[in-house]
């Protein structure tokens, strides 16, 4: 079964689905942000495991071994790092917005907030 061979990818897809449904179906803003973070982490897991090659080590030269064959592909790891930085910024902004909304509307329920905001004057 390929699903069990590629278990990193399988886990990433399952995590993505969990994050996606949490983000889209939950009304609570904090849970939405958690869902979004799970979704992003799933993508990074998927990306990181693309660079992994069974039996090879991290691309740091030790003991004088310089053959490319000895190491995994470092590019996905570099991309994941960049992605994590972006993801952290996005989470920070979303949390800041949630705090702002909570102070104003005294709830974290997005549907309720939209309903109250809709009744405010244009």
């Amino acid at each position: 079964m390929r699903l069990f061979t590629n278990y990193y990818e399988t886990a990433a897809v399952i995590l993505f689905c969990i994050g996606f449904t949490t983000m889209m179906l939950n009304k609570n803003l904090i849970k939405k942000i958690i869902g979004m973070d799970i979704m992003d982490s799933a993508v990074y897991l998927f990306l990181a495991c693309q660079g992994y090659i069974e039996g090879r080590t991290a691309p740091i030269v030790v003991d004088g071994v310089q053959s490319v064959e000895a190491y995994i592909n470092p590019i996905p790891a570099g991309l994941v790092l960049t992605g994590i930085v972006v993801s952290v910024s996005v989470s920070a902004l979303m949390l800041a917005l949630s705090v702002r909304l909570y102070y104003r509307y005294h709830t974290l329920d997005l549907d309720e907030i939209i309903a109250i905001a809709g009744r405010e004057e244009v």
């Binding site: 996606f20 939405k32 992003d40 109250i116």
Partner: peptide, 20 residues
């Protein structure tokens, strides 16, 4: 303004999904 922040959150949610 309240409506602007709500619009910002909705914008972020849809756009982050698109980015992912």
């Amino acid at each position: 303004i309240g409506r602007g922040v709500v619009a910002g959150v909705r914008y972020m949610i849809m756009n982050l999904l698109g980015s992912s």
